[in-house]
Design a protein around this nucleic acid. Structure first.
Lengths: 216, 216
DNA sequence: TTACAGTAGAGAATTATTTCTCGATTCTAC
DNA sequence: GTAGAATCGAGAAATAATTCTCTACTGTAA
């Protein structure tokens, strides 16, 4: 009877909204206000206030009637819940366009992620530096990951080699993979895969645009 | 009684899965097979076969019992439904790391999108070329978009200026915006916004990792 | 032929998510 | 103090998405 709650994992929809709230709250924090209510957030983001209340509840925060939530406490609560309060080491495989772009995002460390090294198969790229991180040969990935206790892997290689890279990551003890290749990768149970498929997003956008045309 | 079907818009979940099927089908096409069944796709992707069948049904394809779907016809059906068979012109605003990476994706044209020009506020970047596309000053965006009948806008500028850029796009007649800035943008009714928030994805990944830790 | 197995498609049942409703709380203004 | 308005929190209802079940069809092999 230590942990009363963890019946079901939090829904992905809720998890996706929490960072959106977080961004808005940060923006509000800089204006000097101290508290915020669900209805205010709802107004700003065009969401349903009850949905926001339920989303925030999963982080364990408590609000006060007529007042709302303490802004700083709420931000902290979201960060803790999402695992942003502890920074995890990450390896990135594939130093092409997208990989380089991610290496250039220096704000990931505020969101719980520190990309400590990049890997590539191309000998021309190995040895160069991208945004301050050295590019290492891909065959060093597994060994280094194990030695450095790296927890997260980021895949930005072309689809045909994504599975191979994922296997290296898994064998190096990496337990969470952020996959930007537009293909399914198979991993053992217990390894978390988060797919980030740009073509899927583009598909959604263009289909809606096409559908809008058909209506008019 | 021309169009019998369009009662409800297709769910976003279905739209996101269709490109995933498409990728798998393309891969299969190159192996020379002619037909594919839902159970085969389900096996490969670890999805439920019925779900795949329902997803594919929205594109209007018809299958045959004991055989499945004609592979080439199915690919075409998905492409047509998603709006990939017609290429639309796009403007990209923000030629930073992520913007450059997207300009380097030369395969978008196979997925219905042609990024014809990039825009930036920074005078140092204006006039340079990124992956073959000239970077133009942001104040030219609206006028050019109208003149060239550009339909899609891609926002890869920092969050604080995303709204301003979105306003330019809307005033230029752009009706679909792919927003990579981690912030909400307000647009008039009828304009489609697809948010692509990396921090949201990262949040999902890291929360699952944290939750997995808590269980062990 | 005829039996059999694999499959699509339609609809029902289940499950998950979102939205609504209401009671309890607490701040503000009189 | 007291009345009134805003809000949280919990549970119910409504809606949406997924999964299950069944029927009909079609190719394959005895």
């Amino acid at each position: 009877m230590d942990e009363p709650k963890p019946l079901r994992p939090t829904s992905e929809a809720t998890l996706r909204r929490l960072p959106i709230y977080h961004h808005l709250l940060q923006k509000r924090l800089s204006t000097g206000i101290k508290t915020i209510s669900c209805s205010q957030i709802a107004e700003e983001l065009d969401y349903d206030a009850t949905q926001i209340r339920k989303d925030l509840a999963v982080t364990g925060i408590k609000g006060r009637p007529k007042v709302g939530y303490d802004l700083a406490a709420l931000i902290l609560s979201i960060e803790t819940f999402l695992g942003w309060s502890r920074v995890r080491k990450a390896f990135l495989a594939g130093s092409g366009h997208l990989g380089s772009a991610l290496l250039g995002y220096n704000r990931f460390s505020h969101y719980g992620l520190d990309i400590v090294a990049a890997f590539d198969r191309d000998p021309d790229r190995v040895g160069t530096k991208v945004h301050g991180r050295e590019v290492l040969p891909i065959n060093k990935l597994a060994g280094l990951a194990k030695r450095m206790r790296v927890e997260v892997g980021i895949i930005t290689v072309p689809a045909p080699v994504a599975q191979e890279v994922a296997d290296f990551m898994v064998s190096g003890g990496i337990r969470a993979i952020w996959n930007f290749a537009p293909t399914k990768i198979n991993v053992p149970a217990g390894v978390i895969v988060q797919n980030e498929d740009l073509y899927s997003s583009l598909g959604v956008l263009l289909q809606k645009l096409s559908a809008a045309h058909r209506l008019v």
